[in-house]
Amino acid sequence: MDPAADASGRVLSADGTPIAWERHGQGPPLVVVDPIMMDRTTSGLAGVAELLAEGHTVYTYDRRGKGESGDGEEYTPESEVDDLLAVVQAAGGSADLLGTSSGAILALRAASESAVVSSVIAVEPPLSQEGAAGPDIRPQLEALIDAEDRAGAVRLFQESIGVPEELIEQSEPSPFEPAAHTISYDLTLMLETDIQSLTGIHVPVLVLASSGSDARLQGWARETAEILPEGSFQLLEGSWHGLDDAVLAEAVNDFLE
């Protein structure tokens, strides 16, 4: 990797919100879209981004309300798509996208709404033709945030999406507490994304699932791949709702070759 290629900066989204980004590596541009609560300092995709930077110009960024990015007065999924497209513009005007969980939904929405997305790798997007992939806990979350119980909000979300109890007990909520108020953003994104609205995506999409995930998560991934005109599905060795960095990087590189 050429250190001279590394850079960071901010780009303004359509509503004027500043979005912080970083660039590493050299090669075709690839934008990484983090899942719920994560920013560049807490990202579960940091390791795979580093591996992918060996052959791609990898852009990572803080989604609105997180890290060094700003926030708007009112959240809408459309504003998040605008944020991502602004980063793509900073990447040169077109890019491949890698997103996981709610970040995968955001990447897919961007591909459905703009021609600047070249392809998408979506890791276990929680989408289903049967409707919402989980309960609407936004009122409870708002009450916890108002009560300044951010750890409680993180735990509530983990429980609501079926994180195994042993993983909840092993996890420490404090790294994610600063972004706890944005949990409702991702829930809005999930609840307001109709899987049928993605059938207009006409770029290649690879949908990935982990062998360690439950049948529900794997089923949602398969369902998403099947409904997309150029969708394909792969089940990879991994843990619950997670893939090893090297395994994911290999799948991404093979797909983008």
Score class of each variant (00 low, 15 high):
132 A>S: 15
137 I>A: 10
137 I>Y: 09
130 E>D: 13
115 A>D: 06
120 V>W: 05
121 I>Q: 06
146 D>Y: 00
142 E>R: 09
146 D>W: 01
130 E>T: 15
124 E>C: 01
134 G>N: 11
115 A>G: 10
143 A>S: 12
136 D>K: 05
124 E>M: 08
134 G>H: 11
133 A>Q: 11
136 D>T: 08
122 A>N: 11
118 S>C: 07
118 S>K: 06
117 V>I: 10
124 E>N: 04
122 A>Q: 15
113 E>Y: 02
131 G>F: 08
123 V>L: 15
130 E>G: 12
128 S>R: 15
141 L>V: 04
114 S>F: 02
124 E>K: 04
136 D>W: 04
146 D>E: 12
115 A>H: 07
121 I>C: 08
114 S>Y: 00
125 P>M: 06
129 Q>P: 13
113 E>W: 00
119 S>G: 07
119 S>T: 07
141 L>T: 07
138 R>C: 01
114 S>T: 02
140 Q>K: 11
117 V>C: 07
135 P>A: 13
132 A>T: 13
140 Q>N: 04
121 I>D: 05
138 R>W: 00
122 A>F: 08
144 L>T: 01
127 L>N: 00
144 L>I: 05
123 V>W: 13
123 V>H: 11
114 S>I: 01
137 I>M: 10
124 E>V: 02
144 L>V: 03
113 E>Q: 06
142 E>G: 02
134 G>C: 14
129 Q>K: 12
134 G>D: 14
115 A>M: 02
121 I>G: 06
124 E>A: 05
117 V>L: 03
118 S>R: 08
128 S>N: 14
117 V>Q: 02
132 A>V: 15
114 S>G: 03
122 A>C: 14
139 P>C: 10
138 R>Y: 00
124 E>Q: 10
147 A>V: 09
119 S>Y: 07
144 L>S: 02
140 Q>C: 03
123 V>Y: 11
144 L>Q: 02
141 L>A: 04
113 E>A: 05
131 G>V: 11
125 P>I: 05
119 S>D: 05
141 L>G: 01
147 A>G: 09
122 A>I: 10
126 P>E: 02
125 P>K: 04
133 A>M: 12
132 A>R: 14
141 L>F: 10
129 Q>I: 14
132 A>Q: 13
116 V>A: 14
129 Q>Y: 15
130 E>A: 14
147 A>M: 06
146 D>P: 01
113 E>H: 00
128 S>M: 14
143 A>E: 10
123 V>K: 06
139 P>G: 08
143 A>Y: 09
121 I>R: 03
121 I>W: 11
142 E>A: 11
142 E>P: 01
138 R>Q: 01
146 D>M: 02
114 S>C: 06
118 S>L: 08
127 L>D: 02
131 G>R: 11
126 P>N: 03
142 E>C: 04
131 G>S: 13
129 Q>C: 15
146 D>A: 13
131 G>A: 10
131 G>Y: 11
139 P>S: 13
121 I>K: 03
136 D>Y: 08
114 S>A: 07
121 I>T: 10
113 E>V: 00
147 A>Y: 02
133 A>H: 08
113 E>T: 04
124 E>D: 04
126 P>C: 00
118 S>N: 11
123 V>M: 11
